[in-house]
């Protein structure tokens, strides 16, 4: 564990908490892409199956359980509790275009052709693009609430901080994982446009609004 890794995890946790509390307290999931949230639930489920096979640490178990439970809690809020507020007309990204390539790529490019390893690889590939339906929704409506922008910023920062962690680990321990690094870079690059808007608009108190 190093500082970049810890900050990355905290940023990830913060993103999830921001999203849950936004939906819960505003009693609305307007502006949130349910499709991205479905993809995240698939990501955590595929990746954290090792919860039942290996013990790493209490920290590791607790974080995995929190990520899993909160992803399903988010789906419950969107699809059941506040379903009337779900903005489905703007959430039109076709997730099969992300799911199918992630499945094929995981079957082809992995460290070992075993069930757990392929599922881990699939979750890494899928996570790198899982935010696309949400970014597509923001670009379609041309705007995002500030709280949604904070959520996206925290979620985007998390993998960026993991990249620094991987640099640090390569430097101190001499080991690296190319699958995680390439996917992590792709994931972070997808947020770049948003990061720019966040810094230039949202942090200056303006609403995130895209030029028409």
């Amino acid at each position: 564990m190093n500082i970049f890794r810890l900050l990355g995890d905290l940023s990830h946790l913060l993103a999830i908490m921001i999203l849950l509390q936004k939906i819960f307290y505003s009693r609305s999931c307007a502006g949130i892409s349910a499709k991205s949230q479905v993809l995240f639930a698939i990501v955590y489920t595929a990746r954290y199956l090792d919860l039942v096979t290996v013990y790493v640490s209490l920290y590791n178990i607790s974080m995995k359980v929190v990520f899993l439970l909160s992803s399903y809690a988010t789906l419950y809020l969107i699809y059941l509790k506040f379903r009337a507020t779900y903005d489905r007309n703007h959430d039109t990204f076709r997730i099969e275009f992300l799911l199918l390539p992630a499945i094929v790529l995981a079957l082809l490019i992995n460290h070992q052709f075993s069930a757990l390893e392929v599922l881990w690889t699939f979750s890494i590939y899928l996570e790198s693009v899982a935010i696309l339906p949400q970014l597509f929704m923001v670009s379609k409506t041309g705007e995002a609430e500030s709280i949604t922008s904070h959520y996206l910023f925290a979620l985007g920062s998390y993998r960026g901080l993991y990249i620094l962690n991987w640099f640090y680990r390569y430097w101190t321990e001499g080991h690296y994982d190319l699958i995680a690094i390439v996917a992590g870079v792709v994931q972070t690059v997808l947020y770049c446009d948003f990061f720019y808007l966040y810094v230039t608009k949202v942090l200056k108190g303006k609403k995130l609004q895209l030029p028409a």
């Binding site: 995890d9 990746r47 290996v54 790493v56 590791n60 995995k64 460290h111 757990l116 080991h175």
Partner: peptide, 10 residues
């Protein structure tokens, strides 16, 4: 999982 990265990462 993942063989090469320690299993600790999330």
């Amino acid at each position: 999982s993942s063989l090469y990265l320690v299993k600790d990462e999330l």
